[in-house]
Design a protein around this nucleic acid. Sequence first.
DNA 1: AGGGCCAATGCAACAGGGTTGCATTGGCAA
DNA 2: TTGCCAATGCAACCCTGTTGCATTGGCCCT
Lengths: 150, 150
Amino acid sequence: MTLTATTLPVDDPAIAALRGVGAKVTSARVRVLQQLRAAPGPLTHRELLDAVQTPGGMPVDRVTVYRVLDWLVEQQLAQKAADQHGVFRFAAAQGAGTHDTHVHFRCATCGGVFCLKDAPPPRPRLPKGFRLTRMDVDIQGECARCARAH
Amino acid sequence: MTLTATTLPVDDPAIAALRGVGAKVTSARVRVLQQLRAAPGPLTHRELLDAVQTPGGMPVDRVTVYRVLDWLVEQQLAQKAADQHGVFRFAAAQGAGTHDTHVHFRCATCGGVFCLKDAPPPRPRLPKGFRLTRMDVDIQGECARCARAH
DNA sequence: AGGGCCAATGCAACAGGGTTGCATTGGCAA
DNA sequence: TTGCCAATGCAACCCTGTTGCATTGGCCCT
Ligand SMILES: [Mn+2]
Ligand SMILES: [Mn+2]
Ligand SMILES: [Zn+2]
Ligand SMILES: [Zn+2]
């Protein structure tokens, strides 16, 4: 029997997730998302860049990794938050659900993002003539795991 | 009677705080700490650098402001934390702020900050073991004057 | 299987926040 | 008033992250 030079395996959950959003499934996207899913905690761009370079395969450009990461965040397949050093860390999104109905807690130590039960604060009452364009709530502290690690 | 070219007034609370830690009271340190204490919220290095440059006085170097800020944090006169964009923001240490009882509106056009009547959102309920260190609400839009000017 | 479109990539240059080394200055104690 | 040394100014540097543009490779269509 002849083997057609098939594309990547469909059974990989990372690849399935990429197909799910109906976009091109590229090597860089697959590798980055696989690393994010396998990681025990949020990773920096630099950590991901290192992790994605495999001895055999061809190298991935650092700009591509930046673009893949921001794209994954847009697709709600990943979350992005600054850690205590001001460096962005990325984590695979839990459910691809809507995060608009609740607020988020940012662990300043590990950079993890946690969904809280509380609803976002109501729109503030503004003086006459004022126009509201944006409201951000930044809740930060230390998550249980980081607090336990002392 | 002769007037000696006296140093800065001792009655200023910022200066008193600096004397309190037993270190040199310099122009840069005084100006930065005064701005931090007067501010309605945490400021970035850039915001402080702009605020500290007075038309009359001699300019302050940006590196000096970085060093003053880190020194204030060491002396526990200020707190430092990365905001959601990964930029460090500095706030005067506890006890100096009277803007804690209400939220603020920032005009994206003129940069003005307005005190609103609304109370800050309540502390969110956190999962067990989580520790809250900071909650910032960023409300921005266009103030009445800028909206009218178009 | 082959061709073609256009998004995704690679590469180089750029931007901005933050740091470091070193010569000079100015606070403050003697 | 003097002198010491911390604090400052300035230039060069590092790191994270972004942008412009030519090239490539996924994927749809035949
Ligand atoms: Mn959420
Ligand atoms: Mn106020
Ligand atoms: Zn944590
Ligand atoms: Zn305005």
